[in-house]
Design a binder for these strands. Structure first.
Lengths: 140, 140
DNA sequence: AATCTTCTTTAGAATTATTCTAAACTGTTG
DNA sequence: CAACAGTTTAGAATAATTCTAAAGAAGATT
């Protein structure tokens, strides 16, 4: 356990260094919460609450900064499904989402199960960055 | 022309009545701006500015109310692509969008050109409301 | 280890988009 | 046209996010 944790921390340090981000206490804490166990979908507020609850003081501004820095570094992905909230996804591999409208929750759809065909050519002078699919669902 | 405009107004009145919305001056003005000429993607702020510029006083609150009422009535569709802005689309038929990240513009992709396959079953007790595809593009 | 420089963090103010509120107003119906 | 229910509105309130400027911590340099 301790070994695993140590390994995880060391790994996180590497990832931060690779992104030219100093491995500060705050960033390590947030990275731990984000990446320690499986993939997650979080909002800034929720992550901030989590850190606070865990007894680690991190300001909300830092949470926002960090989430954006991680996104720029490619270790987080921002998901736009709802105009009022921004979600961050720790899974940056190709995949898509169900969005449960009743509960504002995201559910992953593996990238290899889903396919989009018939895309027209993008306008001249532009290139495709990403294709996002959101399947909106609600209580039957 | 005058004939066409009259026809259009009458038609808009019908649509509003059908949605149990009184055809007030404000709603007719906004409907005119939205539906008079081809399909459009607008934000509340932009529509408000347009109405104001056209010399017709409509409060911003009314623009928001109206856009939401029209959406509920199914004559507008809300598009979520960017966490900071909400777009309303006058085309409510099945279709998708390119989103130009550099300029925050939406471009239609006809619904019959694009297809999504391999969708997994939605979670039990839920049904699919809509499948949204956003193709994010930027300057090459 | 002391120093310097640069990057980070932070509290709180500021901004942006949107919703709410309560009072004034208007369309519709009898 | 009176009466009622539905609408509009200015401005306050809220929510999510970004900005600011000052204090704090990392990493390099001596």
């Amino acid at each position: 356990m301790a070994e695993k944790a140590a390994h995880a921390s060391a790994d996180l340090c590497q990832r931060l260094r690779a992104a030219a981000l100093r491995p500060t206490r705050q960033r390590l804490v947030l990275a731990e919460l984000l990446f320690a166990r499986g993939h997650r979908h979080v909002t800034a507020e929720a992550l901030h609450a989590e850190a606070t609850r865990a007894g680690i003081g991190v300001s909300l501004a830092t949470v926002y900064n960090t989430l954006h820095q991680f996104t720029a570094a490619g270790i987080l992905r921002q998901v736009a499904v709802d105009a009022t909230r921004t979600y961050f996804d720790t899974n940056v591999d190709a995949h898509q989402h169900f969005y449960v409208e009743d509960s504002s929750m995201l559910i992953d759809i593996p990238g290899d199960s889903i396919a989009v065909s018939g895309l027209p050519q993008p306008p001249k002078g532009t290139r495709i960055d990403r294709v996002d699919v959101v399947v909106r669902i609600s209580k039957a």
